[in-house]
């Protein structure tokens, strides 16, 4: 008799996934008890709309973490590609999504490829390399294009409409709400990423690279090509997420998302992605981001100011990390595995 989880995902659920699911259910129940309106379809749709860009960025982070690196440049890549694509579109006198989206994705891809090349040839911790590229990208954009903001009145009309478009609309009491077009985009990215990670040689190479670089290269994994894929893909989807972020915020702000990278990495890490072992699941990432988004938007409903968000999120993060790595430490001790660091 297969468990329902197994028949859908074709594997056993990880401990982190179970623990996060319980945490999210308990938390939602507590919030719902305080404020019954919380447990509604509208809340779900709201979270989808607000969380979609973060979710896409998190998928990129997951990929990088599985490959054994840490990329902190992705929010800057997202913002830069989207901002440059908008500026470029204006230079052509256009206002169309079909121009912005591919251009933004291509720019994100290029920035990601630069990251990959530097990481591969400098052979230094990915954190430090991407910290450098992050500053260079942001600084370069700000110097050359300026940092003017475009609020809803002056931002591209097609982008503003994109942010408000729904695929399903529900007429509620007094106000109508709907499921954002972001939903299918996120689902497509989930499926593509899942397919690449688990059903292609490229995906196996990403896991191999993260588990043991030396072993990976000895069995013939092309490290450069794998890195180009990991960081290029992350950059490309970040380019998409950047446009979605501007659309969702209804504001084009070229200096937004500062410091956001650590939050997204934290959300993915809570979801069980390990820096040291080529481990991580898409479901875990989804749950981690969901928890982050819940804390961001619902603490007020518990009667706590939103100032508590970082506190709770940090506490949950530390607890999850301690749990994940303490288990690994115990199993390492049993198996006499010694790790550097």
């Amino acid at each position: 008799m297969k468990s329902p989880f197994r028949s859908v995902f074709g594997r056993r659920s990880t401990q982190v996934e179970r623990y996060l699911t319980v945490l999210i259910i308990v938390y939602s129940a507590v919030v719902g008890f305080q404020n019954p309106r919380f447990l509604s379809l509208e809340t779900v749709f709201d979270i989808v709309h607000e969380g979609a860009p973060t979710m896409i960025l998190a998928i990129g982070v997951l990929l990088v973490l599985i490959s054994g690196g840490i990329d902190v440049s992705f929010p800057v890549v997202a913002i830069c590609s989207a901002y440059v694509s908008i500026k470029l579109m204006w230079a052509f006198g256009l206002d169309a999504l079909w121009f912005m989206i591919p251009v933004s994705i291509v720019i994100g891809l290029l920035l990601g490829l630069i990251n990959a090349l530097l990481i591969h040839f400098l052979k230094l911790p990915t954190l430090i390399v991407t910290l450098g590229t992050m500053s260079v990208y942001r600084g370069f954009m700000a110097i050359t294009l300026g940092t003017s903001q475009y609020p809803v009145a002056t931002m591209p009309k097609s982008l503003a409409e994109f942010g408000l478009a729904n695929i399903v609309s529900v007429e509620g009491e007094g106000s109508s709400y709907g499921l954002s077009v972001f939903f299918p985009i996120v689902v497509v990215i989930f499926i593509v990423t899942w397919f690449i990670l688990y059903h292609t040689m490229l995906g196996r190479a990403v896991f191999a690279l993260g588990s043991d670089e030396e072993a990976a290269s000895r069995i013939g994994v092309n490290l450069l090509r794998t890195r180009l894929f990991v960081y290029g893909y992350t950059g490309a989807i970040a380019g998409m997420a950047g446009l979605m972020y501007f659309a969702a915020m209804q504001n084009v702000d070229p200096v937004a998302l500062q410091g956001f990278e650590l939050m997204v990495i934290a959300a993915v890490v809570i979801g069980g992605a390990k820096l040291t072992g080529g481990e991580g699941t898409i479901l875990g990432t989804f749950l981690g981001v969901l928890l982050f988004q819940l804390f961001q938007s619902t603490l007020v409903q518990l009667g706590l100011a939103s100032t508590w968000a970082s506190f709770f999120f940090g506490a949950v993060l530390l607890f999850s990390l301690a749990m994940i790595y303490y288990r690994q430490r115990k199993s390492d001790q049993r198996n006499l595995v010694f790790r550097i660091g």
């Binding site: 890490v269 970082s310 506190f311 940090g314 506490a315 790595y325 660091g341």
Partner: peptide, 23 residues
Amino acid sequence: KTSIPPILATLGTSIFFTGIGTV
């Protein structure tokens, strides 16, 4: 004591400390 890689441990504590400061 829990063998969390320093990069992740300090990432977590940096969010946590900021959280305490904000509170």
